[in-house]
Design a protein around this nucleic acid. Structure first.
Length: 556
RNA sequence: UGCCGAAUGGUGUAACGGUAGCACAACGGACUCUGACUCCGUUUGUCUAGGUUCGAAUCCUAGUUCGGCAACCA
């Protein structure tokens, strides 16, 4: 995926380069390890781009590995969706997708090894007692009364845990490390717990499941991962990651964990839990709602994967937990779309224009360029007749000085067509403009005149007789607050933007019929749009991906 | 209050003891058959205080602020 020419370095690239140069590793293997308990979002995209990206850059590979160690939260639906999203983003994993559950047998053996070495024990403290004994950061913990059980007894108990003799929450296996450690994660952490639950892959084979800290490092080691990249909140887990690996029998070199800052973007939320709430409570129309920061949402909205990759590259990789402006994402989206999207014309807020000196039943076609950024995209024929639609905001009865569009007595160019001059307006009883009466200059066919006179503005239009009607969904940021989940004493839902979705009935040029979803199109002078899967042949629906930058914004 | 980590313009980043640069945003201008794109320009920054050094964003000391950690979640 080398679509960004300049790749600024960052500490992870430098670390890998150094590890290769020093001979610490002779190849690179990373992994992207999602838990299949929700849909992937733009934050995951950063991790995907990093893990797959650096592996590729250094001639290595990246595994897709599902961290499915908690059957009560995970589901096959998510497994499938995650694989689709990773591929859509443009990456491919090494071999088959991997699953933590593939290693349950090996992990059980490693746990047994720990017990045999006197480094793990079965504890029957209740969860409440467990917490009490652990203590708090400022006070050391108290050893569990079961800490010194014999190896034989631990082995027997652990076997019986696996055999299903005990109920959930009664017994756990704990690593025997240091109850006085200032790092809570080292105070004899639980590594196995009992869960009589059906796992989406192993079914009812197990009633005993490993906990993240025990499982994750072993998954990495089993797969011979060299660089295990994760987010900052796992920094304090690193000593435990290393302790486990150093205390069981494993081939060298061992994987090493390195942490980087997760991605935050303004005016959205990134936690899977909160996104799930929005879905469940009907605040959005599913995980793939185009307002969601999920990959499926962005895809439906029309964000090209290349734009998301470029964004992740621009955001960089550091240990600083920042907040990236949504405008940067939009910039990347526009930059890509400007290159690839074909141009068409569409009128979102139609008002009728009548060309008085054009024959009632006449019609003709004008040739329009499909993409000025890409001559190979060719041209198309756009029909023209006596009655047209233009956007209401392209006309003003009493325009301010810098207004360059249509107004009484003013001449403008119709994009790719001809010049028209406004003669008068027709209003209804409420004083609203119903019709704009114009005359055209037949000499201006093609967009210029023999006398070479200039017009101030060019506006887009659609032939009324030939126009397609369509529903167009206009999206805006989901939240009105930059950090909706970081405002004290406020629930993030209070900042939902009531105007995040507006639906309008638009008029489209006929050439816009039949595009499949995810086709990027620029409605000239308006924005980038893409067909929604809700479209039916007789009722097209378009999503606004992004507006065009507006250098005017109603200036006077 | 314990441990871990991080602080560079409005935002995100670069610098690896030697001219604080890039991108986004904002603002001005040029160009334009898209008020888009493109081009040019402007504004704004090294958390604080000491120290080392000819020279510090960078090294040292102390402080400040922010983030993370006390699920049998990941």
């Amino acid at each position: 995926m080398n679509d960004t020419p300049e790749k600024p370095s960052h500490f992870i690239r430098e670390m890998i380069a150094a590890d290769l140069a020093s001979g610490k590793h002779d190849s690179v293997r990373t992994r992207f390890p999602p838990e299949p308990n929700g849909y992937l979002h733009i934050g995951h995209a950063k991790s995907i781009c990093l893990n797959f990206g650096v592996a590729e850059e250094f001639g290595g590979v990246c595994n897709l590995r599902y961290d499915d160690t908690n059957p009560v939260k995970e589901d096959q639906e998510y497994v499938d969706a995650i694989a689709r999203d990773v591929k859509w983003l443009g990456f491919d994993w090494d071999g088959e997708p991997k699953f933590a559950s593939d290693y349950f047998e090996q992990m059980y053996a490693f746990a047994t090894e720990l017990i045999e070495k006197g480094l793990a024990y079965v504890c029957t403290l209740t969860p409440e007692e467990f917490r009490e004994y652990r203590g708090v950061p400022t006070r050391p913990g108290t050893p569990s009364p079961h800490r010194d059980r014999s190896v034989a007894e631990n082995l027997d108990l652990f076997r019986r845990m696996k055999a299903g003799e005990f109920s959930d929450g009664t017994y756990v296996l704990r690593a025997k490390i240091d109850m006085d450690s200032p790092n809570l994660h080292l105070r004899d952490p639980a590594i196995y717990r009992i869960r009589h639950a059906t796992h989406h892959r192993t079914g009812d084979t197990w009633c005993l499941y490993p906990i993240y800290d025990f499982a994750h490092c072993l998954e990495d080691a089993i797969e011979r991962v060299t660089h295990s990249l994760c987010t900052l909140e796992f920094e304090v887990h690193r000593p435990l990651y290393n302790w486990i690996l150093e205390n069981v029998t494993l081939p060298k070199p061992l994987p090493e964990q390195t942490e980087f800052a997760r991605l935050n973007i303004t005016n959205t939320v990134m936690s899977k839990r909160k996104l799930l709430e929005l879905v469940r409570e009907g605040e959005v129309n599913g995980w793939d709602d185009p307002r969601m920061p999920t990959l499926v949402g962005m895809r439906r909205r029309g964000y090209p994967p290349a734009a998301i990759r470029a964004f992740c590259e621009k955001v960089g990789v550091t240990k600083f937990n920042g907040l990236t402006d949504f405008a940067l994402l939009e910039f990347c989206v526009r930059e890509e779309l400007n290159r690839v999207a074909e141009r068409r014309m569409a009128v979102l807020d139609p008002v009728k224009v009548v060309i008085e000196n054009y024959p009632e039943d006449g019609e003709e076609f004008f040739e329009a360029v499909n993409n000025p950024e890409n001559p190979e995209a060719g041209t198309r024929q756009v029909p023209f007749c006596r009655e047209l639609y233009i956007d209401r905001e392209d006309f003003m009865e009493d325009p301010p000085g810098k207004f360059r569009r249509l107004a009484p007595g003013r001449e403008v160019r119709l994009r790719a067509a001809c010049y028209i001059t406004c003669q008068s307006v027709v209003k209804n009883d409420q004083g609203e403009i119903e019709e704009i009466r114009c005359v055209w200059d037949p000499e201006s066919r093609g967009g210029g005149t023999p006398d070479g006179r200039k017009v101030k503005g060019t506006i887009h239009w659609v032939s009324a007789r030939h126009a397609l009607s369509a529903e167009v969904r206009l999206y805006d940021r989901l939240f009105t607050e930059a950090q909706p989940d970081a405002v004290e004493d406020k629930d993030f839902r209070e900042f939902l933007n009531p105007e995040s979705l507006q639906v309008v009935q638009a008029k489209l040029e006929p050439g816009l019929a039949g595009f499949p979803p995810e086709t990027p199109v620029q409605f000239e002078r308006v924005g980038y749009f893409t067909p929604d899967p809700d479209s039916r042949p007789d009722a097209p629906v378009w999503n606004r991906t992004a507006t065009l930058r507006d250098g005017w914004k109603g200036k006077t």
